[in-house]
């Protein structure tokens, strides 16, 4: 049972189910549309998960662009959206730089910069906005942010 009642919300676009799948990964079901963000096989076994209509990638590190996870999710109809660094890996339906917006199936998507507040490395402390171009989704004002690589 992947989509449970507790994860469901009514939105202007229909019934939305949100399944956090660990690390930066999220699976969304909006009515009959299946949306993935940064699916990652180390935190979720995607066997049995529904095939993707669209997959968003925030950047091309292997914990965000994971070909093992994609094997379970991609069909010939799946479309990909991501920043320019993803173009060398996949044919993107839409390449998004920070500040770009894109409309897919009545869903408005906006790309905003990502940043780390805490440096993961010992002995370093400052934070900088990333230039990797992280994609955020704004679902017609209902769901505010999906932020796989940004800390808050």
């Amino acid at each position: 049972m992947i989509f449970t009642l507790a994860q469901q919300f009514s939105t202007l676009l229909g019934l939305l189910t949100i399944v956090p799948t660990g690390h930066g990964a999220v699976c969304l079901k909006l009515e009959d549309k299946i949306i993935y963000i940064d699916p990652y096989s180390q935190t979720t076994d995607y066997t049995g998960y529904p095939k993707a209509d669209i997959i968003f990638f925030t950047h091309d590190h292997y914990d965000h662009y994971d070909t093992t996870a994609l094997k379970h999710l991609v069909t010939a109809e799946t479309v990909f959206v991501g920043p320019p660094c993803m173009e060398k890996h996949l044919t993107l339906e839409k390449t998004m730089k920070n500040g770009d917006s894109y409309r897919w199936e009545n869903i408005e998507i906006l790309a905003v910069p990502a940043y780390n507040i805490l440096n993961k490395r010992p002995m370093a402390s400052h934070s900088t906005p990333k230039d990797t171009g992280t994609v955020m989704c704004l679902l017609s004002g209902i769901l505010k942010y999906i932020f796989p690589e940004t800390q808050n």
Binding site: Q42, H61, D63, H64, T67, K120, R121, K130, T132
Partner: peptide, 21 residues
């Protein structure tokens, strides 16, 4: 995953802060 994925000078290291899990 067994393949050379990227390289460059340290001052332009995209992994300086965001180290993949």
């Amino acid at each position: 995953d067994g393949v050379i994925d990227g390289f460059g000078p340290m001052e332009r290291n995209p992994y300086r802060e965001d180290i993949p899990l």
